[in-house]
Design a protein around this nucleic acid. Structure first.
Lengths: 105, 105
DNA sequence: TGCAATAGTTCAATAATATTGAAATACGGA
DNA sequence: TCCGTATTTCAATATTATTGAACTATTGCA
């Protein structure tokens, strides 16, 4: 990998970054998928979009502190930073994804 | 007023619209200000931005179902749709504004 | 080793959206 | 009726998102 992944510390995660990241339905969908499993590569977590777009969305989620990415061989395994986020923003993700489910087409 | 204000019904409010509206710090700030009072005109709720920008932000918040706007004479009085939002998205606004406060510069 | 396949990233061009100045509107008061 | 204030609308510009194409890294296999 050219540039290694950057993961902000839990205390540097802002509500601004989180809301911005999750204001996009594709990214919400990615995070929602990640929250229901214990690791997924980029292709699995988000089907139907071109790879470059998916890569962009993963970067936004990562920079917002919502996901952790780790290169495992040729693919990148992503996980939701559930516990950390829930510690710093109690109830937020729960509140959001309760409704995200319903609104999915 | 040329076109009257449109306020979506509580059941038509989506998490998509809310997160999009609140992904912008200025709009979060406006809503935060509105939540702490019982009515404010556009100028009061958001100082430091050009009027056309403020108007745009209010439209986004209104269309998202987060605020109610009513023309009172020459000005527009805005209120946060607190109760309705909290009924449909329990805990969401609380969770967001708990941190918004802290992150304000 | 070397080559091909796979997964993802980067870059650069284009498309979509936000910001804002200037003009227009709506209302209240003199 | 005319003026001042608050806000909106419009149109131009600036910013940001999307995506195809080229590139990189890694694995497996001949």
């Amino acid at each position: 990998m050219a540039r290694p992944f950057h993961h902000p510390a839990a205390e540097d995660v802002t509500i601004d970054g989180i809301l911005y990241a999750l204001s996009d339905p594709s990214r919400r969908d990615i995070l929602f998928n990640l929250m229901g499993c214990d690791g997924m590569n980029c292709g699995q977590a988000c089907e139907g979009l071109p790879p470059s777009t998916v890569s962009y969305h993963f970067t936004i989620l990562r920079e917002a502190g919502l996901i952790h990415s780790e290169k495992k061989g040729v693919q990148v395994v992503n996980t939701a930073r559930k516990v950390e986020i829930d510690e710093h923003f109690p109830g937020l993700l729960h509140s959001i994804f309760q409704h995200h489910k319903k609104e999915q087409k």
